[in-house]
Design a binder for these strands. Structure first.
Lengths: 344, 344
DNA sequence: GCTAATCGAGAAAACGCTTTCTCGCCGGTG
DNA sequence: CACCGGCGAGAAAGCGTTTTCTCGATTAGC
C-alpha cells in the first residue's frame, strides 16, 4: 500500500494520498509555505513522518534549477595542497548547505576541460584547479563554466574571480632568508615544467637574481613529489649550492631524506627549504623552513566567492592575492665556508 | 534564437528544432540508438555540435533514475586515512564513469546519520566511514542506505558489505615485534574512546596480553592526531615503558617530535611505532615502524563492492578483511636495560 | 441578504530528459 | 492489386518535484 510506483521509493504522492490532500499541498507544507491551513499542515506532517518521506533531490533540482552542489576539479587528490583546498572548500560550503563533488583529473591536462564541463553541469558552480592547462584553453572554456572561481590561475575572461598565492614573492622571501644566512650559491629544484605556480616561482627568482647579481642561482629539473626530491640528491650535490629552494615541501622532504642517507647534514652542510607549509612540515627532522600558504583558508575563500556568484551578489572583490609567510625552522642555517662540488 | 526558454541553457528542444526533428529523435541519437536513419542522425549530430549541446544531467537522472554519482561519508577530511580512501574510491569510480560526492561529518557523530541519508538520496550508492556511530544506530539506518558499503564497521543488517582492516592483528604484530626486540614494558597510546577501530586494537592487545603474561602493557589516553601524540610525552615518560604503540602514525609522529624536544633518543631510549603507514611515515626521522594498511586499495575495493551492488550483481564476496603488514623501520630498536621511570 | 474580496487548496504546467506507444509509409508477398 | 509486416520517427507519458493558475468556499461589507 505504501510502496510507490516505479522507483519503489516513497514519493510526495504517497504522502498526499495518506494525508488526503493533493501533492501540491504536501509540497507547500514541506517548503514551509504558510498559506496552508494549520490542521491540514499538521496532517501532512504526520503523514510524512509516518512514511519517513524525504523529498527526492533530483526532482527538486529539476524543478528548482539548482542542485545545492558545487564541483571542484583538482589535478591530483594525492597532493596535500589540493587536499587542503578541498577541505576548506567542503567545510565552508557545508555551512551553507552545499555539498561538493570532486573531479580528479589525475594530472592529464587534456581531460581537464571536459571534466570541468561535466562537473559544472551537475553543479551550481565550480572551483577549478588546473595548473597545467594552457591560458588559451582556460580562457576559452571559462565563460561556459560560470559561476566559476579559479585557484592559482588568472584569465582574461570577464567576471571570473581568481584566488592566487603570490609564489613569486614567497620564493624571493626564502631566497633572501638564505642570503641573510650567508649563502651565495643557491639552487632551485623546480616543479613540473608546465605548472603555472612553477612559472610564478621562476619569475620571482628572476627578480631576485636581478636584485642580487652576486648570488649564483642554479636551476635544477624536478617535479612535485617526494620521489622527485629524493632522486634529485645527486644533481643537488653536484651543483655545489649550499642553499636549496625546493619546489614544495614534499620535494624538500624527499631531498632531506636523500641527503640524510648520504650522511649530509641539514642544515650544517646544506640548507633546505620547502614551500606550502603542509601539516607535516613542522614535524620533519630538522623541521622544515618553508613559506606558509594559508591554503585551507584559500578553500574557504573560494566558497565565499563562489557563493556570491551563485547568489548573483556583486562580488566585492573580484579575487584575492595571498602572501606566503616565511616560516623559519631548523632546516636552514648559516652557510659554511664555500664548499667544493661533490662528485658522483 | 538559439537561447532557450527558462534556464537560458541549450536544451534538447533547441537541437530538435535546428535539426528539424522531434526531441525524441535527438534523444535517440545522443544515446546511440541505431533505429535512426543515418542521414537524420548525422543532421542531429551536426546540429548538436553546432549548438554545443550537452544533455542536462539532472533531467537525465530523473528520467533514468540514476545519478552516476556515489557518496562517501567521512568523519574528518583532514585525516590522511580518509583522504587515501577517498582517493582510491574516486579513482576507481571515475574509471567506470562515476563521480563522488563528499560528506564530511567533522567528527560530530550525531550528524552522521542525517548526513548519510542526505548524501545517499543524491547518489546511486554510499560508502560510509562512521567510526563513532553506535552499532544500534548503524544497524537502524543501514537498510535505508542500500546500496551501501561499510568501511571498518560491520553490521547485522543484511546485504551490506564491509571492508575491515584487522587492527587487532596488526597491533599484535607490532607488540610481538617489540617483544622480540627485548621490550617488556609496553604502552598503548589509545585513540578516540568511541572509535571502533580503537576497540579492535584494544581487543588485539587483550589477546596479546593473554599470550604474554610477563609483558606489562600500560594503557594511556590519547586521540588521533599530532597534537595528541605531542601532548602525551609526559604520560609516556612517566609510565616507564620502552616500547610505545601509538594509535596511528600521526600520533606516533607527534610523540616522536615531543620526545625529540625532550632529548629522548628514538629508538635508543624508547621505541615508537605507528599504524597505517601513511605516505609520510617513511620520511620521518627516524623512519617510522608501523603496520601498513593498503588503504588506497581499500577505497578501490569499496567501489568494486558498491558497483556490484548498484548493478545488482551477486556480490561474490560480502566483504573483505585486510591484514596489515608490519613495516619495520628505524623508530623501533632493541630495548635497553630496564629504565626507571622519569618524573616531571 | 447579496455581492465582492480573500483565502486556501486542487489542477495543471513546467523543469529536461528517456522511452513506450502509436502511426504512417515502405516494400514484399500471395 | 491488395494486404500484411516491419521499420523509422513523432506524440505522449513518465520521472518527482515546485509553482502558477484557477476556482470554490468562506467572510466581510454595504
Amino acid at each position: 500500500m505504501v510502496r510507490k510506483s516505479a522507483t519503489g521509493r516513497i514519493g510526495i504522492a504517497d504522502v498526499a494520498v495518506k494525508a488526503g490532500v493533493s501533492h501540491a499541498t504536501v509540497s507547500r507544507v514541506m517548503n514551509g509555505n504558510y498559506t496552508v491551513d494549520p490542521d491540514i499542515a499538521a496532517r501532512v506532517r504526520a503523514a510524512a513522518a509516518e512514511l519517513k518521506y524525504q523529498p527526492n533531490p533530483v526532482g527538486r533540482s529539476l524543478a528548482l534549477g539548482k542542485t545545492d552542489t558545487i564541483g571542484i576539479v583538482v589535478p591530483d587528490l594525492a597532493n596535500p595542497t589540493f587536499q587542503a583546498i578541498l577541505r576548506g572548500l567542503s567545510r565552508a560550503a557545508a555551512q551553507d548547505g552545499y555539498r561538493v563533488l570532486i573531479a580528479d583529473s589525475f594530472e592529464v591536462s587534456s581531460e581537464e576541460a571536459i571534466l570541468a564541463g561535466e562537473a559544472r553541469r551537475r553543479c551550481d558552480g565550480l572551483v577549478l584547479c588546473a595548473p597545467r592547462m594552457t591560458d588559451a584553453e582556460l580562457e576559452e572554456i571559462a565563460p561556459s563554466l560560470h559561476p566559476l572561481v579559479l585557484i592559482n590561475r588568472i584569465t582574461a575572461a570577464a567576471g571570473i574571480p581568481s584566488l592566487v598565492v603570490d609564489y613569486g614573492q614567497g620564493v624571493q622571501d626564502i631566497a633572501e632568508h638564505l642570503v641573510e644566512l650567508g649563502h651565495t650559491r643557491l639552487a632551485f629544484l623546480a616543479g613540473p615544467p608546465r605548472s603555472a605556480s612553477n612559472g610564478l616561482r621562476l619569475q620571482g627568482l628572476e627578480s631576485f637574481k636581478a636584485a642580487h647579481p652576486h648570488v649564483e642561482v642554479t636551476m635544477l629539473e624536478g617535479g612535485s613529489d617526494f620521489d622527485t626530491g629524493h632522486e634529485a640528491v645527486d644533481a643537488v650535490l653536484e651543483c655545489g649550492a649550499t642553499g636549496i629552494l625546493a619546489f614544495n615541501d614534499l620535494v624538500a622532504m624527499g631531498l632531506m631524506s636523500g641527503l640524510h642517507e648520504r650522511g649530509i647534514d641539514v642544515p650544517g652542510d646544506i640548507s633546505v627549504t620547502g614551500f606550502d607549509d603542509i601539516p607535516f612540515a613542522k614535524y620533519t627532522t630538522p623541521a622544515l623552513t618553508t613559506a606558509a600558504v594559508p591554503i585551507t583558508e584559500l578553500g574557504e575563500q573560494a566558497w565565499q566567492q563562489l557563493r556570491a556568484l551563485i547568489r548573483k551578489e556583486a562580488s566585492d572583490a573580484p579575487g584575492s592575492r595571498y602572501q606566503p609567510r616565511l616560516e623559519v625552522r631548523s632546516s636552514s642555517g648559516p652557510a659554511r665556508a664555500a664548499r667544493t662540488a661533490v662528485h658522483g
